[in-house]
Design a protein around this nucleic acid. Structure first.
Lengths: 228, 228
DNA sequence: GCAAATTAATGATTTATTCAAG
DNA sequence: CTTGAATAAATCATTAATTTGC
C-alpha cells in the first residue's frame, strides 16, 4: 500500500489553532482572497489546499450554530415548562379562591408573568455569533388591509382586553386568504400604516382560556368564539 | 439617523431558531396562551410582540403546506413516469418473447429522459482515482464561488500574494469548465447520482468495492466506479 | 497492553432555502 | 413567476477516540 495517501485532509495542530484563532477573530465566511491567503499561510505547517480552508469554515460555522441552537432549544423548553407549571398553580389557586366550576374564558392569570419578563432590551446580538443573514418578511398588504378593516366595523367589541378572539378571527382570515406574500424587506417602507395595525393588538392583555394544554395542531377555534 | 423604528419586526437569529425549533417540535398553531409565553421568552432576545409570533406561525405553516404540495406533486409525477416506464419495459419484453417483427405502435415518450439510457451509471463520487488530473473534485460551490470572486476581485485586500495551488485549482476549474464531464449521456441529466436512484435497471456490476477496511454499518452501495 | 468493535468528530458533498434581479 | 447566486442545513464517509473482551 504505498504512502497510503489519506483521502482527506487532516489538519495539523498548528493549522487548527490558527484557523480557530481566525474564526474567533471574526472570520466566519472568508472570501476567495482570504482563503488564498489563509491557505498560503497554513501551508507552512503542512499540506493543505484552498478547499480545505473553505470547508473548514463552512463546517465550523454550521456546527457552531447547531450547538447554539440546541442550547437555546433546551433552555426554552425548560422555561416553557416552568411557565406552564406556574400557570397551572395559579389557576388552581384561582379556582380555589372562587370555587368556580367553569373558569371564565377571558381571565388572564398569566398577565403579570409575561409582563414581568418582557421588557428586556435587545441584548447580546453580537456576542453569540455574527449574524450573517437578517431575515425579515413583510406582512402581506392585503392581509394587513383586511386586518385594519376588521377593526373598524367593530369598535365596541375589541375595545379592551383579551386577545382571545382576535387570534381566532385572524386565523380564519388568514386561512381564507392563504395566499402568500412576497418577502422583500424594505426597512424604509411605510411607517404610516403600522400604527393602525398596532392598535389592533393590545398586547397588554392576554386572552386565555385556561385550556392551555400542550401543542395541538388542529383547529381549536371550535369553541368560544364567544366574543363579545 | 436613528437606526431604530423599522416599521416591522425583524427577528433575531436566536428568535428565529427558537421559533423554528418549536415549529418542528409540533407547534403549528399556537393558541393565545402559547403565543404569550413564546413572546415572553423571545423578548429576551430582542423586541417582539405577540402579533409577530402569530404572523410567523401563520406564514410558516402556509409556506410549509405550499412546499409539501409541490413536493407531492413532483413525487406523483415521478411515480407516474416510472409506471409508464415499467409498462414500456414489459411491453418490450413481451415483444421479445414472441418475436414480434412489427415495430411497436408507439415509441417510448420517455427516451429523452436518460432513464432509459442508463446501462451504466457513473458514481462520480468518492475515490475517482483519476490519474489524469492531479486533484479532482467536482465542480462545486467552492469553485463556483472562487470563479465568481475572481471575476470581481474582492475589495480591500488585494489578491497580490500567493499563487501556490491556486493556479492549479484555477486551471483545473477551467479544465472542468471547458470539457465537461465525460459521460455526456444527457446534458439535462445532472442528477444521476447513482446511489439514491432506485435502479430500474440493476447495475449488476458495480456496487462492490473492496472497502474491507473500517466498515461502518451503513449500507454502502455508493462510491467507487469500478468499471464494470 | 492491545486489537477488534463501537462511537464520536469532522472533513467533504449534496440538497434546500433565501433573497433579489430579470 | 422564474431564475441565479449565495449559503445554510442535511447528509455521507472517513478518521480519531473510546470501549471491550481477552
Amino acid at each position: 500500500m504505498s504512502p497510503a495517501a489519506s483521502s482527506r485532509w487532516c489538519p495539523t495542530p498548528e493549522q487548527l489553532m490558527i484557523l480557530e484563532e481566525m474564526y474567533r477573530g471574526g472570520i466566519k465566511t472568508p472570501n476567495a482572497t482570504q482563503i488564498q491567503q489563509i491557505t498560503a499561510h497554513l501551508s507552512c505547517y503542512g499540506k493543505i489546499e484552498g478547499k480545505n480552508v473553505f470547508y473548514w469554515f463552512q463546517n465550523h460555522k454550521a456546527r457552531d450554530r447547531q450547538k447554539l441552537r440546541r442550547k437555546l432549544a433546551k433552555q426554552f423548553q425548560q422555561q416553557q415548562l416552568q411557565q406552564q407549571q406556574m400557570l397551572f398553580q395559579q389557576q388552581n389557586f384561582h379556582n380555589l379562591l372562587h370555587r368556580v366550576e367553569s373558569p371564565p374564558p377571558y381571565s388572564s392569570p398569566l398577565r403579570h408573568l409575561s409582563l414581568s419578563t418582557s421588557p428586556t432590551i435587545f441584548p447580546q446580538r453580537g456576542v453569540l455569533e455574527d449574524v450573517s443573514s437578517p431575515y425579515t418578511w413583510k406582512m402581506d398588504h392585503y392581509k394587513e388591509r383586511m386586518i385594519n378593516e376588521m377593526e373598524r366595523p367593530t369598535p365596541g367589541t375589541a375595545g379592551s382586553s383579551y386577545g382571545g378572539d382576535w387570534m381566532m378571527m385572524m386565523s380564519m382570515m388568514m386561512d381564507m386568504a392563504s395566499s402568500t406574500s412576497t418577502p422583500i424587506c424594505n426597512p424604509y417602507d411605510e411607517n404610516d400604516r403600522s400604527p393602525k395595525t398596532l392598535q389592533l393588538f393590545p398586547i397588554t392583555s392576554t386572552g386565555l382560556k385556561d385550556e392551555s394544554t400542550s401543542s395541538k395542531t388542529a383547529t381549536d377555534f371550535s369553541s368560544s368564539s364567544s366574543t363579545i
